[in-house]
C-alpha cells in the first residue's frame, strides 16, 4: 500500500480544512471499504483524514418527529440502539445485517452512504425511509442523493455529518444476502408513512432506486398480493457473476412481498 499523510482532526472544520488544502485527501470513516481499496491501490490518496476522533459525529438521538444518526455511528451501535429499535426497528434490523459482527464494530452509516456501493444496505434504508443527508454545507434529500454507481450528490470536500430519518408508521427491510460477502444481491425497504408508501431497492441497480408502481399499489392496498406482476424491468438492472438481471428482478419482487407480509 502506498503511504500517505495521516490527519486526525477533532472537529469538522479542521477536517474540511485538510480536505481543501491537500492535493488528494480522502476521508477515513470506518475504513471497511476504503482500507481494502487502498490495499489494492484502486485509490492512492496523498492524505487520509480520520473522522474517528470527532465526537460530534457519533451517536443517535430523537429530534422532533425524526431520528438523527451521526455519520460516524457504527452499524453495531445502530443495530443495538434502544432508541433506533423503538423508533425504526426496520433500520436497526438493516444495520444488523451488514457484513459480519467485526465489520459492524467499525463500519459507519456515513461511510456507507458516502461510498454508495450499489450492493450496500444503507442506501435502501436512506431512500426507503425518505431520509435527509446532512453535510457540513447543506441538507440533501434521499431522492437527490444517490446519482449513480458509487456516485452521490456530494461535492468535493463535502462531509456528511448525520442522517435524519422520518419515523414511518411501519417499515421492513428484506435482503437476499450474498453468502460470501454479505452484500445484498438485492435488498428492499418498504416503508408506510400513512399518507405515502415508499419502496426502495438496493443491490439490483447502479444505485438505490424507488419502484413507483409498487408504491402506488401498496398505497391502495397494503398487501403482498398487491405487488403481483409488478417486478421491475430487468432491462434496467445489473447482471454480474452472482446474479442475472432477470434473477434480480425476480428477487426484488419476492423481497418486496416478504417485507410487506412482515408488517401488513
Amino acid at each position: 500500500m502506498r503511504n500517505f499523510d495521516y490527519h486526525r482532526p477533532t472537529d469538522i472544520a479542521a477536517a474540511a480544512r485538510v480536505l481543501a488544502e491537500r492535493e488528494d485527501a480522502k476521508l477515513l470513516a470506518g475504513g471497511m471499504t476504503l482500507i481494502p481499496t487502498l490495499k489494492q491501490r484502486l485509490a492512492t490518496p496523498t492524505d487520509l483524514v480520520d473522522l474517528g476522533r470527532i465526537a460530534a459525529l457519533k451517536g443517535v438521538r430523537r429530534e422532533g418527529n425524526g431520528l438523527v444518526i451521526g455519520a460516524m455511528t457504527c452499524h453495531a451501535d445502530v443495530a443495538t440502539s434502544p432508541v433506533v429499535r423503538e423508533a425504526i426497528p426496520a433500520l436497526a434490523s438493516l444495520a444488523g445485517q451488514i457484513g459480519d459482527p467485526a465489520v459492524r464494530h467499525r463500519g459507519t452509516i456515513g461511510g456507507s452512504v458516502a461510498n454508495a456501493d450499489p450492493a450496500a444496505d444503507y442506501p435502501a434504508g436512506v431512500v426507503g425511509l425518505d431520509a435527509t443527508v446532512i453535510t457540513d454545507r447543506r441538507e440533501i434529500g434521499a431522492d437527490d442523493f444517490f446519482t449513480g454507481l458509487f456516485e452521490t450528490a456530494l461535492e468535493p470536500g463535502e462531509i456528511i455529518t448525520a442522517i435524519r430519518f422520518l419515523l414511518p408508521k411501519r417499515a421492513a427491510y428484506q435482503k437476499f444476502r450474498h453468502p460470501a460477502s454479505g452484500y445484498a444481491v438485492a435488498g428492499v425497504m418498504v416503508a408506510d408513512f400513512g399518507d405515502a408508501v415508499r419502496v426502495a431497492v438496493t443491490g439490483a441497480g447502479p444505485s438505490a432506486f424507488r419502484l413507483d408502481a409498487m408504491e402506488k399499489a401498496l398505497g391502495a392496498s397494503f398487501t403482498p398480493g398487491a405487488l403481483e406482476g409488478l417486478n421491475p424491468d430487468a432491462l434496467e438492472l445489473l447482471t454480474d457473476m452472482h446474479a442475472s438481471a432477470e434473477y434480480r428482478a425476480h428477487l426484488v419482487g419476492v423481497l418486496a412481498r416478504r417485507a410487506v407480509a412482515a408488517i401488513a
Binding site: 471497511m32 482500507i35 453495531a76 467485526a102 464494530h105 467499525r106
Partner: peptide, 13 residues
Amino acid sequence: GKAVKSCTIFAVQ
C-alpha cells in the same frame, strides 16, 4: 473491548 479485524485498521487509528 470489541472484536475487530486488525487487517483492516491502521495502527495509528
